[in-house]
Every structure is written in structure tokens, then in C-alpha cells.
Design a protein around this nucleic acid. Structure first.
Lengths: 232, 232
DNA sequence: CCAAGAATTTGATAAATATCAATTGAAAAG
DNA sequence: CTTTTCAATTGATATTTATCAAATTCTTGG
């Protein structure tokens, strides 16, 4: 593994506070792998061998059951994933695939559990990470339960615009069919929903979204910090 | 607080492994409170003052946003709740109300965080608890995204029958409107869905559910261990 | 530049779910 | 035992979402 990749891992909050010796143990046991787009890194139902750290690229988490499939989340680097399955040593509940060529650091699950038992700072970081993920999932469930697909889309647009600096205009960062799945709707539905939002001043040309009346959009979407604010 | 209540708390996996002195510190700072049915213990958006431990009764977690409301989960004793908000010291994302008269032990959030920093066994237990909750939430989201309300109901019936010892017959443990909300549907829908399940041998009289053809029910419901099995 | 393949859009329709209103049923209070 | 209240059911209808099929547009390898 290149030193620069190890540094990316080390810089993550999850690994930042731990003792050097313990970090060396983890990174020494781990290795780096490159994957092309569309590779399934993790299959739900299997047992975790490695903690994964996404260093470059991006990963989509999805799940399939009884002929249906859904996207649960997208992950951007740098971040660790499948932490919960690794610390409990239980089956994966989600599958994961690369949505672009990606670089992943793989750290043997047993090494993670060993260091977790020895290093209190790491244990605390694991708690912080899990609690953070837990809260995001609560927000996802509320989003799904309390809103129609049109409202989820409207709020996603508001949130993404804020993330991009509130310019009122941005390019979709992902394919529309991926966005549709992430928001819990079919691509046909996303298409119609985007058209529908013209009513509140959202204009779409290809993958460019223009918010021409943020107040009207917000009045419709009724954003809720307890669902939409990433810092809450 | 009575010694017997302290023992109930101590017996929880979350508190089981910690040092006696630390447990005394927690329980000494805490106190016990009784609540009648229907009391809102926690309001989403507020900051956590106490880790709650439900000792008796039961609690419903719910959330409201933009005039809509949903039940996210039900909790049975003994269990701790709002751990994620306490350890991160962040706003509650859910509200909680008693659904029957309940007994709750309240432990000041700061005391929890103090002990968490000092006691590695407790820190590990917090991780296990959070990871477990996280995984349950993933299952909830998959259940919601991958199934219709009729399928969720069918699978809930199967799971509840298994919990009750696979007798093929049980009494609903909660009111139908609470169950409806928990499963993400309206009470009218639950009523119709229950009637619909007669097609696959589920017969309902008041709050008594009879499964007369478990194979037919399973063939329809297509249960999935990665969603329905509480041990996975 | 062009053709093939994929993504996206559009139309028509069906299925799932919510809503509103009215009724029935059951349990608690007097 | 009756009245009151609330839960539950039923009917009618509207909304939301999915499905299927057919354009259309966009990308990309040749």
C-alpha cells in the first residue's frame, strides 16, 4: 500500500485517535485493492472478512429480496464501511457495488476486533461512527415513511443545493436511475416528479437542475432539520 | 430506587460488564420514575438529558413532520433507549411515549459519557448495543422499501408466531391502530389487509390471529432472514 | 461521423395506499 | 344495564406509485 493511501485512512476520524502501534497493526494486516465500475464488493448474507475503507471512487449499497431491489445509500470517500457487521461478526445485511472505478483498503475483520479490544480511543471512535450511521438511518426511515416520493425529491434537491454552496443550480452528481433508486422510486417516477417540480420553480435540462424560486420549493418541500440536516 | 430495579438495570448486557464502582456512579446519579400510559417521555428535537432504561411497561417511538406521523418502533423492557443521542450529545430524532403505565430509570447523560470514557467494558457494550440497533434499523428500512404493506403484515404475523412459539395462533399484543402504524400503514389498510390474508389461510376474529396454513402464508410472504430474523 | 446500446422520457394502465364518511362493535364509566 | 367513547370495519373515492410498452435522447466505440 502506498504511504499516501495509508495517510488517507489514518486521517479518518475512525482511525485518527488510536495509538500508532495499533494503527500500524491494522494497516500492516490490510491491503489495497482497485476495482472497476460495477463490481459487487460485498454480498448480503455473507460473513465479514474485512473492514472496508473507501479511499477513491464511490460505492452504492443495495439490497435484494424476493425479486425486488433497492438502493439504500451511496458512499463517498474517505469512509469506512460495514463496521457494524465487522464488530458484531454478523452477516452483511446489504450488498455493495462500485459505481465508479474505486480504491478500497481492506483490513481483516479480526484485526479490527483485536485493536478494538485494546485501544479505548478506537473504541470511542467506533461508537461515534456507529451512532452517526444509526442517526442517518433513522433519518432515512423517517424520510421514507413521512414523505411522498415527490417530497423526498424536493428535499433532496434543497439539501444537495445547500451542500454545493446554495448557488441555486447544480449538475446531478449521479445517474438519474441511481438517484431514483436512492430516493425510493422508479426512474419513470423520478422523470415525472422532476417535471412536476416545475410548478414550484425547479427547471431541469438534462442533468442540470435550476432552482428558480427557492422559497416556493421550500414551501412545498417543508424541509425538516431532523430529517435533512446532515449535521443534526 | 429499589435494589430490585437497580438489579434489572445491572442485568442488561449494556451494563453487565462494567466495573462495580462505575455502575454505582451511574445508578447513584440516576433515579426511577413511573409514568402513566400515553405520556411523551422524549420530544424529538430536544437535547438528551438522560439515558433512559425501560424497566416495566412499554414505549412507542414515533416521529412527526409536516402534519404526518409515523411509529418507528416499540420497545419492551428491559432495555435502554436513546443511546445514540446520549453518546453523541445530539438532538433526539424520535419522540417516545408510554403505551402502558411504565417504569423508567433515568441516568444523567453526562454520567453516561463519563463512565463511557473510563470503562472499556462499557464502551464495548455500547458498541454492541448500537451495532445491534443499527442492524435492526437496516432491516426496517429494507422491510419498508422492498415490500408492500400486505407483505409486511404477512411477515410480521409469521415472525410474531415464531416469537410466541410457533403455535399458529396468537392474540395481538397491541392495538390494531398501533400495529398499523408500526407496519407503516393506516388502520383502514390493516383492516383490509387482514381480511385479504384469508386467501392464504390467516383467519382473524377480533384480536385473535389463526394461521391455518403456514406454508401458504410463507409462500406468499416470502420471509427473508436478512429482514425478519431477529438473531441475524 | 455513425451505429449500437443504454438512459431517459412519455403514454397508458394497473396496483397500492390514503382519505373521508358512515357504520358497527367493543369496552369503560356512570 | 345503559350510555358514552373509542376502536375497528366497510364503502366510496382520490392520490400515489409501479408496470409495461414505445418513443426519444444521450453516449460511446468503431
Amino acid at each position: 500500500m502506498r504511504a499516501t493511501d495509508a495517510e488517507i485512512v489514518r486521517a479518518l476520524p475512525l482511525f485518527g485517535g488510536m495509538q500508532d502501534a495499533h494503527f500500524e497493526a491494522l494497516i500492516g494486516a490490510g491491503y489495497l485493492q482497485r476495482f472497476p465500475q460495477g463490481v459487487v464488493l460485498i454480498h448480503e448474507g455473507e460473513r465479514p472478512d474485512f473492514l472496508h475503507v473507501l479511499v477513491q471512487g464511490s460505492v452504492e449499497f443495495f439490497s435484494e429480496s424476493a425479486d425486488r431491489a433497492t438502493t439504500l445509500s451511496l458512499l463517498k470517500p474517505p469512509s469506512a464501511f460495514i463496521l457494524a457487521a465487522v464488530v458484531l461478526d454478523q452477516l452483511y445485511l446489504k450488498s455493495a457495488r462500485t459505481v465508479e472505478p474505486s480504491v478500497v483498503v481492506l483490513i481483516p475483520a479480526q484485526a479490527v476486533r483485536d485493536v478494538f479490544d485494546k485501544d479505548p480511543a478506537f473504541a470511542r471512535a467506533v461508537v461515534a461512527e456507529l451512532a452517526f450511521r444509526y442517526r442517518n438511518l433513522v433519518k432515512d426511515l423517517k424520510n421514507q415513511r413521512l414523505r411522498t416520493s415527490l417530497e423526498r425529491l424536493a428535499n433532496w434537491i434543497i439539501a444537495h443545493d445547500e451542500q454545493m454552496g446554495r448557488t441555486g443550480s447544480f449538475k446531478l452528481p449521479i445517474e438519474k436511475k441511481v438517484l431514483a433508486n436512492l430516493l425510493g422510486m422508479r426512474p419513470e417516477n423520478l422523470s415525472r416528479n422532476l417535471a412536476e417540480l416545475a410548478r414550484v420553480g425547479v427547471h431541469v435540462r438534462g442533468s442540470i437542475i435550476d432552482i428558480r424560486d427557492i422559497e416556493a420549493l421550500k414551501a412545498f418541500a417543508r424541509p425538516d432539520p431532523l430529517i435533512d440536516d446532515p449535521a443534526v
